[in-house]
Amino acid sequence: MTDTLSPATTGATGRRAPSAGNLLPIIGVVVAAVAVVLPILVDDFAFNYLMSYTVITCILALTMHLLMGLAGVFSLGQAAMFGAGAYAAVVIIGQTGIDGTLGLFLVAAVGAVIGILMGLVTLRTTDLYLALTTLAFGYIVENLVRNSDWLGGPQGITGFDITFAGSYLDEPKLLYWVGLGFLYLLIVIIMSVRRSKVGRALMATRESPIAARSIGIDTRRYKLLAFGVAGAFAAVAGGLYTAYALVVDPSVFGIDLTLSVLAIAIVGGLRSMPGIIVVAIVLTYFRNSAETFGASQYVLLIYGLLIVLTLRFLPQGLGGLLTSPRVLAATRSIRARFHGGTQ
Protein backbone atom coordinates (compact mmCIF):
# COMPACT_ATOMS: atom_id res chain seq x y z
CA MET A 1 0.00 0.00 0.00
CA THR A 2 1.23 3.49 -0.74
CA ASP A 3 1.77 6.00 1.95
CA THR A 4 2.09 9.70 1.41
CA LEU A 5 1.28 10.72 4.95
CA SER A 6 3.66 13.26 6.46
CA PRO A 7 7.20 12.06 5.88
CA ALA A 8 9.03 10.43 8.71
CA THR A 9 11.76 12.45 10.33
CA THR A 10 14.86 10.43 10.94
CA GLY A 11 15.13 8.81 14.34
CA ALA A 12 18.65 10.00 15.05
CA THR A 13 17.73 13.51 16.12
CA GLY A 14 14.42 12.63 17.71
CA ARG A 15 13.81 11.66 21.29
CA ARG A 16 13.90 7.93 21.58
CA ALA A 17 12.02 5.83 24.06
CA PRO A 18 14.24 4.77 26.96
CA SER A 19 16.33 1.70 26.36
CA ALA A 20 18.79 0.13 28.76
CA GLY A 21 22.43 0.02 27.75
CA ASN A 22 24.21 -3.31 27.51
CA LEU A 23 26.25 -2.63 30.61
CA LEU A 24 23.32 -2.10 32.94
CA PRO A 25 22.33 -5.76 33.45
CA ILE A 26 25.90 -6.70 34.29
CA ILE A 27 26.23 -3.83 36.74
CA GLY A 28 22.90 -4.86 38.25
CA VAL A 29 23.98 -8.46 38.83
CA VAL A 30 27.31 -7.40 40.33
CA VAL A 31 25.62 -4.94 42.70
CA ALA A 32 23.06 -7.58 43.68
CA ALA A 33 25.83 -10.07 44.46
CA VAL A 34 27.79 -7.53 46.50
CA ALA A 35 24.61 -6.72 48.43
CA VAL A 36 24.32 -10.38 49.43
CA VAL A 37 27.82 -10.63 50.91
CA LEU A 38 27.86 -7.10 52.34
CA PRO A 39 26.90 -8.05 55.93
CA ILE A 40 29.81 -10.49 56.02
CA LEU A 41 32.19 -7.79 54.85
CA VAL A 42 30.82 -5.17 57.25
CA ASP A 43 30.22 -7.17 60.41
CA ASP A 44 28.63 -4.66 62.77
CA PHE A 45 25.45 -5.55 64.66
CA ALA A 46 23.84 -2.12 64.58
CA PHE A 47 24.96 -1.38 61.03
CA ASN A 48 23.58 -4.70 59.83
CA TYR A 49 20.28 -3.71 61.40
CA LEU A 50 20.42 -0.41 59.56
CA MET A 51 21.01 -2.36 56.36
CA SER A 52 17.96 -4.48 57.00
CA TYR A 53 15.90 -1.35 57.64
CA THR A 54 17.17 0.05 54.35
CA VAL A 55 16.06 -3.10 52.55
CA ILE A 56 12.61 -2.81 54.14
CA THR A 57 12.41 0.80 52.97
CA CYS A 58 13.47 -0.28 49.47
CA ILE A 59 10.67 -2.85 49.31
CA LEU A 60 8.09 -0.29 50.40
CA ALA A 61 9.41 2.33 47.98
CA LEU A 62 9.28 -0.13 45.10
CA THR A 63 5.64 -0.92 45.84
CA MET A 64 5.05 2.79 45.25
CA HIS A 65 7.01 2.50 42.01
CA LEU A 66 4.70 -0.32 40.97
CA LEU A 67 1.50 1.50 41.90
CA MET A 68 2.33 5.07 40.94
CA GLY A 69 5.05 4.68 38.34
CA LEU A 70 3.75 1.69 36.44
CA ALA A 71 0.00 1.63 37.05
CA GLY A 72 -0.31 5.40 37.45
CA VAL A 73 -2.39 5.04 40.61
CA PHE A 74 -1.47 7.88 42.94
CA SER A 75 -2.15 5.99 46.14
CA LEU A 76 -1.16 7.30 49.55
CA GLY A 77 -2.48 4.19 51.27
CA GLN A 78 0.64 2.05 51.36
CA ALA A 79 0.89 2.58 55.12
CA ALA A 80 -2.38 0.67 55.52
CA MET A 81 -0.84 -2.43 53.96
CA PHE A 82 2.50 -1.91 55.69
CA GLY A 83 0.75 -1.65 59.04
CA ALA A 84 -1.62 -4.52 58.31
CA GLY A 85 1.40 -6.62 57.38
CA ALA A 86 3.12 -5.67 60.62
CA TYR A 87 0.15 -6.76 62.70
CA ALA A 88 -0.45 -9.84 60.54
CA ALA A 89 3.17 -10.93 61.05
CA VAL A 90 2.90 -10.53 64.81
CA VAL A 91 -0.35 -12.49 64.95
CA ILE A 92 0.55 -15.17 62.40
CA ILE A 93 4.25 -15.67 63.14
CA GLY A 94 4.79 -14.17 66.58
CA GLN A 95 1.65 -15.37 68.35
CA THR A 96 0.33 -18.34 66.37
CA GLY A 97 3.87 -19.63 65.88
CA ILE A 98 3.75 -20.34 62.15
CA ASP A 99 7.31 -20.13 60.85
CA GLY A 100 8.20 -17.15 58.67
CA THR A 101 8.99 -19.32 55.65
CA LEU A 102 5.24 -19.88 55.35
CA GLY A 103 4.10 -17.05 57.60
CA LEU A 104 5.55 -14.22 55.54
CA PHE A 105 3.67 -15.51 52.50
CA LEU A 106 0.47 -15.53 54.56
CA VAL A 107 1.31 -11.97 55.56
CA ALA A 108 1.70 -11.18 51.86
CA ALA A 109 -1.71 -12.70 51.21
CA VAL A 110 -3.25 -10.50 53.91
CA GLY A 111 -1.61 -7.47 52.32
CA ALA A 112 -2.82 -8.47 48.87
CA VAL A 113 -6.41 -8.81 50.11
CA ILE A 114 -6.30 -5.44 51.86
CA GLY A 115 -4.66 -3.90 48.79
CA ILE A 116 -7.39 -5.25 46.53
CA LEU A 117 -10.04 -4.05 48.98
CA MET A 118 -8.51 -0.60 48.90
CA GLY A 119 -8.44 -0.82 45.12
CA LEU A 120 -12.13 -1.72 45.00
CA VAL A 121 -13.09 1.09 47.34
CA THR A 122 -11.12 3.70 45.42
CA LEU A 123 -11.62 2.38 41.88
CA ARG A 124 -14.02 5.07 40.79
CA THR A 125 -11.79 7.90 41.89
CA THR A 126 -8.77 9.33 40.17
CA ASP A 127 -5.89 11.67 40.91
CA LEU A 128 -6.32 13.86 43.95
CA TYR A 129 -9.53 12.12 45.00
CA LEU A 130 -7.82 8.77 44.80
CA ALA A 131 -4.92 10.05 46.87
CA LEU A 132 -7.32 11.33 49.52
CA THR A 133 -9.49 8.21 49.51
CA THR A 134 -6.51 5.90 49.89
CA LEU A 135 -5.18 8.12 52.66
CA ALA A 136 -8.57 7.88 54.38
CA PHE A 137 -8.50 4.12 53.93
CA GLY A 138 -5.26 4.08 55.90
CA TYR A 139 -6.84 6.07 58.71
CA ILE A 140 -9.79 3.69 58.83
CA VAL A 141 -7.54 0.64 59.18
CA GLU A 142 -5.50 2.45 61.82
CA ASN A 143 -8.61 3.26 63.82
CA LEU A 144 -9.91 -0.29 63.60
CA VAL A 145 -6.61 -1.53 65.00
CA ARG A 146 -6.41 1.20 67.65
CA ASN A 147 -9.80 0.09 68.95
CA SER A 148 -9.18 -3.67 68.79
CA ASP A 149 -8.25 -4.97 72.21
CA TRP A 150 -6.97 -8.26 70.83
CA LEU A 151 -4.45 -6.28 68.81
CA GLY A 152 -3.26 -4.45 71.88
CA GLY A 153 -5.26 -1.26 71.27
CA PRO A 154 -3.29 1.97 71.25
CA GLN A 155 -0.34 0.39 73.10
CA GLY A 156 0.23 -2.26 70.49
CA ILE A 157 1.84 -5.65 71.05
CA THR A 158 5.23 -6.40 72.55
CA GLY A 159 7.09 -9.51 73.57
CA PHE A 160 6.88 -11.64 70.42
CA ASP A 161 9.48 -13.33 68.30
CA ILE A 162 9.46 -13.43 64.52
CA THR A 163 11.12 -16.60 63.27
CA PHE A 164 12.31 -17.63 59.85
CA ALA A 165 13.33 -21.22 59.11
CA GLY A 166 13.49 -21.81 62.85
CA SER A 167 15.85 -18.90 63.58
CA TYR A 168 14.92 -15.67 65.29
CA LEU A 169 14.80 -12.69 62.99
CA ASP A 170 16.31 -10.50 65.68
CA GLU A 171 19.62 -11.58 64.17
CA PRO A 172 20.21 -8.62 61.84
CA LYS A 173 22.09 -10.52 59.12
CA LEU A 174 19.29 -13.02 58.77
CA LEU A 175 16.69 -10.26 58.76
CA TYR A 176 18.69 -8.50 56.08
CA TRP A 177 18.98 -11.59 53.92
CA VAL A 178 15.30 -12.43 54.21
CA GLY A 179 14.44 -8.85 53.32
CA LEU A 180 16.89 -8.91 50.45
CA GLY A 181 15.28 -12.12 49.18
CA PHE A 182 11.88 -10.46 49.06
CA LEU A 183 13.40 -7.33 47.53
CA TYR A 184 14.98 -9.40 44.75
CA LEU A 185 11.72 -11.25 44.23
CA LEU A 186 9.93 -7.92 43.85
CA ILE A 187 12.61 -6.61 41.48
CA VAL A 188 12.33 -9.73 39.31
CA ILE A 189 8.55 -9.44 39.26
CA ILE A 190 8.63 -5.75 38.36
CA MET A 191 11.23 -6.29 35.64
CA SER A 192 9.29 -9.22 34.19
CA VAL A 193 5.98 -7.45 34.37
CA ARG A 194 7.36 -4.37 32.67
CA ARG A 195 8.46 -6.42 29.67
CA SER A 196 5.32 -8.49 29.42
CA LYS A 197 1.65 -8.23 28.60
CA VAL A 198 0.75 -7.05 32.09
CA GLY A 199 3.31 -4.27 31.96
CA ARG A 200 1.87 -2.96 28.72
CA ALA A 201 -1.62 -3.24 30.13
CA LEU A 202 -0.54 -1.21 33.19
CA MET A 203 1.15 1.31 30.91
CA ALA A 204 -2.01 1.59 28.82
CA THR A 205 -4.16 1.98 31.93
CA ARG A 206 -1.86 4.74 33.15
CA GLU A 207 -1.47 6.63 29.86
CA SER A 208 -5.04 6.46 28.58
CA PRO A 209 -7.71 4.31 30.21
CA ILE A 210 -10.13 4.95 27.34
CA ALA A 211 -7.65 3.72 24.75
CA ALA A 212 -6.69 0.81 26.98
CA ARG A 213 -10.27 -0.37 27.11
CA SER A 214 -10.62 0.07 23.35
CA ILE A 215 -7.99 -2.59 22.80
CA GLY A 216 -9.53 -5.06 25.21
CA ILE A 217 -7.70 -4.17 28.44
CA ASP A 218 -9.87 -4.42 31.52
CA THR A 219 -8.34 -1.43 33.29
CA ARG A 220 -10.07 -2.20 36.59
CA ARG A 221 -8.58 -5.66 36.68
CA TYR A 222 -5.07 -4.40 36.11
CA LYS A 223 -5.41 -1.64 38.65
CA LEU A 224 -6.56 -4.21 41.18
CA LEU A 225 -3.66 -6.44 40.22
CA ALA A 226 -1.25 -3.58 40.90
CA PHE A 227 -2.95 -2.86 44.23
CA GLY A 228 -2.75 -6.55 45.12
CA VAL A 229 0.94 -7.01 44.33
CA ALA A 230 1.89 -3.69 45.91
CA GLY A 231 -0.19 -4.61 48.96
CA ALA A 232 1.44 -8.02 49.29
CA PHE A 233 4.96 -6.62 49.30
CA ALA A 234 4.12 -3.62 51.47
CA ALA A 235 2.72 -6.11 53.99
CA VAL A 236 5.91 -8.19 53.87
CA ALA A 237 7.89 -5.00 54.47
CA GLY A 238 5.64 -4.30 57.46
CA GLY A 239 6.11 -7.84 58.74
CA LEU A 240 9.87 -7.52 58.53
CA TYR A 241 9.67 -4.15 60.24
CA THR A 242 8.20 -5.80 63.35
CA ALA A 243 11.28 -8.03 63.48
CA TYR A 244 13.36 -4.86 63.27
CA ALA A 245 11.39 -2.75 65.78
CA LEU A 246 10.55 -5.67 68.12
CA VAL A 247 7.16 -4.10 68.88
CA VAL A 248 4.11 -3.21 66.86
CA ASP A 249 1.78 -0.32 67.63
CA PRO A 250 -0.60 1.84 65.59
CA SER A 251 2.23 4.22 64.68
CA VAL A 252 3.08 1.79 61.84
CA PHE A 253 0.09 3.30 60.02
CA GLY A 254 1.47 6.81 60.43
CA ILE A 255 1.53 9.37 57.66
CA ASP A 256 5.23 10.08 58.35
CA LEU A 257 6.24 6.76 56.87
CA THR A 258 4.11 7.27 53.76
CA LEU A 259 5.55 10.72 53.25
CA SER A 260 9.17 9.75 53.67
CA VAL A 261 8.78 6.81 51.29
CA LEU A 262 6.90 9.05 48.88
CA ALA A 263 9.82 11.47 49.03
CA ILE A 264 12.15 8.61 48.13
CA ALA A 265 9.95 7.55 45.23
CA ILE A 266 9.62 11.07 43.84
CA VAL A 267 13.29 11.99 44.18
CA GLY A 268 14.36 8.64 42.75
CA GLY A 269 11.84 8.89 39.95
CA LEU A 270 8.46 7.18 40.09
CA ARG A 271 9.21 5.36 36.86
CA SER A 272 12.75 4.33 37.71
CA MET A 273 13.54 1.29 39.81
CA PRO A 274 17.31 1.91 40.05
CA GLY A 275 16.68 5.57 40.89
CA ILE A 276 14.34 4.65 43.72
CA ILE A 277 16.69 2.02 45.15
CA VAL A 278 19.68 4.37 45.13
CA VAL A 279 17.70 7.19 46.74
CA ALA A 280 16.17 4.81 49.30
CA ILE A 281 19.64 3.73 50.39
CA VAL A 282 21.10 7.24 50.42
CA LEU A 283 18.18 8.91 52.21
CA THR A 284 17.77 6.14 54.80
CA TYR A 285 21.47 6.33 55.60
CA PHE A 286 21.37 10.13 55.59
CA ARG A 287 18.39 10.30 57.90
CA ASN A 288 19.89 7.83 60.32
CA SER A 289 23.22 9.61 60.38
CA ALA A 290 21.81 13.13 60.10
CA GLU A 291 23.15 13.80 63.58
CA THR A 292 26.74 13.25 62.48
CA PHE A 293 26.25 15.77 59.70
CA GLY A 294 24.62 18.11 62.24
CA ALA A 295 21.53 18.10 60.10
CA SER A 296 18.92 16.34 62.20
CA GLN A 297 16.89 19.52 62.69
CA TYR A 298 16.77 19.94 58.96
CA VAL A 299 15.93 16.39 57.90
CA LEU A 300 12.32 17.12 57.03
CA LEU A 301 13.26 20.45 55.52
CA ILE A 302 15.79 18.70 53.33
CA TYR A 303 13.25 16.05 52.33
CA GLY A 304 10.80 18.75 51.35
CA LEU A 305 13.47 20.69 49.53
CA LEU A 306 14.52 17.59 47.60
CA ILE A 307 10.92 16.99 46.52
CA VAL A 308 10.45 20.59 45.39
CA LEU A 309 13.76 20.71 43.55
CA THR A 310 13.13 17.34 41.92
CA LEU A 311 9.68 18.30 40.73
CA ARG A 312 11.02 21.62 39.48
CA PHE A 313 14.18 20.51 37.70
CA LEU A 314 13.90 16.72 37.28
CA PRO A 315 10.24 15.79 36.97
CA GLN A 316 11.27 12.23 36.19
CA GLY A 317 13.44 12.08 39.30
CA LEU A 318 17.07 11.07 39.47
CA GLY A 319 16.22 7.91 37.56
CA GLY A 320 14.97 10.11 34.74
CA LEU A 321 18.54 11.28 34.26
CA LEU A 322 19.48 7.79 33.06
CA THR A 323 17.16 8.13 30.12
CA SER A 324 17.21 11.87 29.52
CA PRO A 325 18.25 12.72 25.95
CA ARG A 326 21.11 15.00 27.03
CA VAL A 327 22.65 12.41 29.32
CA LEU A 328 22.21 9.71 26.69
CA ALA A 329 23.91 11.92 24.12
CA ALA A 330 26.73 12.63 26.56
CA THR A 331 27.27 8.92 27.32
CA ARG A 332 27.24 8.17 23.61
CA SER A 333 29.90 10.75 22.92
CA ILE A 334 32.02 9.57 25.85
CA ARG A 335 31.67 5.99 24.71
CA ALA A 336 32.60 6.97 21.16
CA ARG A 337 35.64 8.85 22.38
CA PHE A 338 36.63 5.97 24.63
CA HIS A 339 36.40 3.51 21.75
CA GLY A 340 38.31 5.88 19.51
CA GLY A 341 41.10 6.11 22.05
CA THR A 342 41.55 2.40 22.58
CA GLN A 343 41.38 1.30 19.00
Binding site: F45, A46, F47, Y53
Partner: peptide
Amino acid sequence: IYDCQSDQAICVQKTRQAITS
Protein backbone atom coordinates in the same frame (compact mmCIF):
# COMPACT_ATOMS: atom_id res chain seq x y z
CA ILE B 1 23.62 11.73 73.17
CA TYR B 2 21.76 10.20 70.26
CA ASP B 3 19.09 12.28 68.57
CA CYS B 4 16.46 9.80 67.41
CA GLN B 5 14.40 12.47 65.60
CA SER B 6 11.09 11.36 67.18
CA ASP B 7 11.07 8.44 64.76
CA GLN B 8 10.45 4.94 66.06
CA ALA B 9 12.79 3.21 63.61
CA ILE B 10 15.62 5.63 64.40
CA CYS B 11 15.05 5.41 68.17
CA VAL B 12 15.38 1.62 67.92
CA GLN B 13 18.41 1.92 65.69
CA LYS B 14 20.18 4.42 67.95
CA THR B 15 19.54 2.26 71.02
CA ARG B 16 21.06 -0.72 69.22
CA GLN B 17 24.03 1.30 68.09
CA ALA B 18 24.59 2.56 71.64
CA ILE B 19 24.68 -0.85 73.27
CA THR B 20 26.39 -2.84 70.50
CA SER B 21 28.67 -0.86 68.20
